[in-house]
């Protein structure tokens, strides 16, 4: 066996790794965070570097009915996407778990398709579909479309957590007298809950972020925040755009933090329990 001379000690390897990772990390995060100082700028236009600190733009954002209604439209669409996407994705994961039937892979592919099909294709398809069924001019079609693209995320996170399910638990609950609903509540739900939560957060951020479909199906009163930003940035370069960006970054960060805290809490409770054998 030839020993590589380039082998480093584990401690030095780690240092080198973090040294290399830092610029990558900065490259990924810093451009996003630039919106925060811009939003807190005291200028009437978008400028960088900012001249001075002021909450004027933030106040202006919340005073402007066009922007607040866009925020509310986004929240409504995200609400529909989270609820329906979670129900669809979790049902698909539970229904396909531990089963084998002909065409199963095709069903899985169908569930995952919204992740793979280009958004603009989906947007056009949804646009035509909702026009043909006469469901336009409200936030509902946007929410429904977002629910479809959120479903694969919930499906994947739920499926991952179901991998840890001991199938004997289902049988033992049945032998103790549990019906289908009780088995779901006492056996499946505790196992898939982490997957459901992270899936729901994914669904939320997918919807909040989605622009193309929301642009196709926009209407007065159904203009989401990214759409409002996109249209405004072409004609009306105000710091309110930066404020809404900062708002989205904040929401995404909160979502991420919830997940981190949840994971850490589970880990620490797991560690507190001595593993008796």
């Amino acid at each position: 066996m030839k020993r590589s001379r380039k082998t480093l000690q584990p401690g030095r390897q780690r240092k080198l790794l973090s040294l290399l990772s830092l610029p990558v990390f900065a490259f990924l995060v810093v451009p996003t965070l630039i919106v925060v100082p811009v939003a807190l700028n005291n200028s009437r236009y978008i400028t960088f570097p900012p001249g001075g600190v002021s909450l004027a733009a933030v106040q202006g954002f919340f005073a402007d009915q066009a922007w607040t209604s866009a925020l509310s439209a986004s929240m409504q669409a995200a609400g529909i996407a989270v609820v329906l996407g979670t129900v669809f994705g979790a049902s698909a994961a539970l229904g396909l778990h531990g089963r084998k039937f002909p065409g199963q892979q095709a069903v899985v592919g169908l569930v995952l398709a919204p992740m793979i099909v280009p958004t603009v294709v989906l947007a056009l398809a949804f646009y035509q579909f909702f026009i043909s069924v006469g469901l336009v001019g409200s936030i509902i079609p946007i929410g429904l479309a977002h629910a479809v693209i959120a479903t694969p995320y919930v499906y994947l996170t739920t499926r991952a957590s179901l991998a840890g399910l001991n199938p004997a638990l289902v049988r033992s609950a049945q032998s103790l007298g549990a019906g289908m609903l009780s088995v779901f509540r006492h056996v499946h739900l505790p196992v898939i809950l982490p997957g459901l939560i992270s899936g729901a957060l994914f669904a939320f951020s997918v919807s909040i972020d989605e622009t193309v479909m929301a642009l196709f199906m926009q209407s007065p009163g159904a203009t989401t925040l990214p759409v409002k930003m996109f249209t405004d940035i072409q004609f009306n370069l105000t710091p309110k755009i930066a404020v809404s960006s900062a708002l989205l970054v904040t929401v995404a960060t909160i979502g991420l933090l919830i997940q981190v805290v949840y994971v850490l809490k589970r880990r620490s409770t797991a560690r507190m329990m001595p593993l008796a054998v």
Partner: peptide, 27 residues
């Protein structure tokens, strides 16, 4: 199975991990 009224002990016990011993027995 739930209507057969048989007590089953499984190979690896299949206790509900998120329930206490008493909650398992009470199930």
């Amino acid at each position: 199975p739930r209507e057969r009224n048989l007590g089953v002990v499984f190979q690896n016990y299949a206790l509900f991990p998120h329930m206490s011993a008493r909650e398992n027995v009470e199930f």
